[in-house]
Design a protein around this nucleic acid. Structure first.
Length: 275
DNA sequence: ATAAGGCCCTGACCGC
DNA sequence: TGCGGTCAGGGCCTTA
């Protein structure tokens, strides 16, 4: 599942592959993938566009175009973007193909069809509800404490709320809570200032380390498993302390890692180390 | 205002 | 070998 570190890796890998390349044709096989504007408008507006800048906000990729518009891509669960040097036959999971002026192609593939593309003049149209970026100066302990204040839902649910902090998903929520020593079902407003400080720090350090290791590649299927745009696996799965380690010994205390469901999401933790 | 549940999708997995 | 049923999961929407 692409979360912040995986999306950041994607953007960094795509930058040299797409910089200054121009779109000359667009084919949409599954119209629902195009969130904005209409499919016909998307096709017309993308033709002739040149990629000029590359960024990320939360789990959204921001591909800036010479016109000033931005192509926003959210991979959700199973989205992939692959850049080919020559035209390639679209497979059953390819939903959008962009032809490039030099004969190359960009394929958007997504077995679950949850991902979306937007073409917008102003990115706030799509991003306005997001909370702070985890590495922004504005994401300090005071901001975090203010967002948590008065919230009774489990702290795990707050970490997954993109309006609190942008980019944390199921993997990095569990890993952050373990590193901070906090039980995932704790009521958010029961955390002390010291615990919030530990959790804030854990979020930044886990995400930073995961970016350095190009994200986490998990699962068994080549379709479901996240890989970088060039097909390489990430390396951070080897650093996971709890995520998908149910029944295995805690690396800190040796007790088996437990799995529960918190707000409809599988949650992994050590009941000895996390209180 | 927050919180909880449904929805979109389909590959993987399980039991028979 | 095949079939039906269940599950996972991000973010948005609806309902309480």
């Amino acid at each position: 599942m692409p979360e912040l570190p995986e999306v950041e890796t994607y953007v960094r890998d795509l930058t040299p592959l797409l910089h200054n390349r121009t779109v000359t044709g667009v084919t949409v096989f599954w119209p629902r993938i195009i969130a904005l504007p209409t499919v016909d408008e998307f096709i017309q507006a993308m033709i002739g566009q040149r990629f000029t800048s590359f960024g990320r906000r939360g789990k959204y990729m921001l591909l800036g175009l010479a016109s000033g518009d931005t192509l926003i891509v959210h991979l959700r669960m199973t989205g992939r973007v692959t850049v080919y040097a020559q035209p390639v036959v679209a497979d059953k999971h390819t939903h959008v193909v962009l032809d490039l002026a030099d004969g190359g192609q960009i394929h958007y593939q997504d077995s679950r069809k949850f991902g979306r593309l937007w073409l917008v003049a102003n990115t706030t149209t799509v991003l306005h509800k997001l909370g702070e970026e985890p590495f922004a100066a504005a994401f300090d302990v005071d901001y975090f404490a203010a967002k948590v204040a008065g919230r009774t839902s489990p702290i795990k649910a707050l970490l997954l709320d993109q309006a609190v902090v942008a980019g944390v998903g199921n993997i990095y929520a569990d890993e952050s809570l373990f590193r901070a020593g906090i039980h995932p079902t704790r009521a958010s407003n029961s955390l002390t200032r010291e615990e919030l400080t530990r959790l804030h720090s854990a979020i930044q350090s886990v995400l930073g380390q995961a970016i350095d290791r190009h994200g986490s590649s998990l699962g068994h299927s080549s379709i479901q498993n996240y890989t970088r745009p060039g097909g390489e696996a990430g390396e951070f799965q080897g650093e996971h302390k709890v995520f998908q380690r149910t029944g295995k010994p805690c690396m800190h205390c040796g007790q088996p890692i437990e799995r529960i469901v918190v707000t409809q999401r599988s949650t992994h933790f050590c009941s000895t180390c996390q209180r």
